[in-house]
Amino acid sequence: MTSTPVQTPTLHILNKAPEHSRFAACLGALSPGDVLVLSENAVLALPARRNELPEGTLAVSADLSARGLEEAFAAQSIDYAELVRLTEQHPRIISW
């Protein structure tokens, strides 16, 4: 590519388990300034693939709690209201 387009900050919402091919596709598509939120089975990446996730990765509280992970990853946890706020703050959203 000859010119790099200005990146619009993008919110990535990923709901696939780490073994799903789209999990890798999503991590590969992240640009600096993007925000990654893990939901549903993707929250399993926190115990399993922690070092591959970018700094500041977030996860949906209800999905962490459902899987017994809320206590261990309280620092990453966000509730639905915060997720809604993030969707409002980002001009671009990709739902993986």
Binding site: P5, R92, I93
Partner: peptide, 15 residues
């Protein structure tokens, strides 16, 4: 040729 660029043209992208 560049799917990432194609996706960049949309505000909402859903798989």
């Amino acid at each position: 040729d560049d799917t990432k660029a194609a996706m960049a043209g949309y505000e909402q992208v859903a798989f």
